[in-house]
């Protein structure tokens, strides 16, 4: 009986850790999403600009003038990076979800095995 209890305890701890991990991944996914949105808005804004428009980049406390092509390239690069990050994080989320489903199934199994013994 104590064995089962201990086993169950360990599984529950595992499950909680996995849930926490999942939450972290979901948070980073959300952060990436908002960054993607912001960069997309900037990209859209750039596409409507003339070639000779003055673009500045905030570096620390000063604004540095930047070439349009350079700025567009920087934003495109960032979007690409963010997209890859999103894919990576989504895979992590799926992995953790699978793992936590697995652990949950184990918990239910152990619990249902313990049940008849309690009744008996």
């Amino acid at each position: 009986m104590a064995d089962i209890q201990q086993h169950l305890q360990a599984l529950t701890t595992d499950y909680q850790t996995l849930q926490q991990e999942l939450q972290n991944h979901v948070n980073s996914r959300q952060k990436l999403e908002s960054q993607q949105q912001e960069n997309k808005a900037v990209q859209k804004e750039f596409s409507g600009l003339k070639g000779d428009a003055n673009i500045y980049k905030l570096v620390g406390p000063v604004l540095l003038k930047q070439d349009k092509t350079e700025a567009v390239l920087a934003v495109d690069g960032r979007l690409e990076y963010i997209e890859n990050e999103i894919k990576r994080v989504e895979k992590q989320i799926k992995d953790v979800e699978d793992k936590s489903d697995d652990v949950r199934a184990q918990i239910i199994k152990v619990q249902s095995e313990a049940q008849p013994q309690v009744v008996a």
Partner: peptide, 21 residues
């Protein structure tokens, strides 16, 4: 005027364009 368009980029715009933005 110089308008903050996000992610640290600022664009110089005429007041008319800035208003539109």
């Amino acid at each position: 005027v110089i308008v903050d368009v996000g992610t640290g980029f600022y664009v110089e715009k005429s007041t008319k364009d800035a208003t539109k933005f």
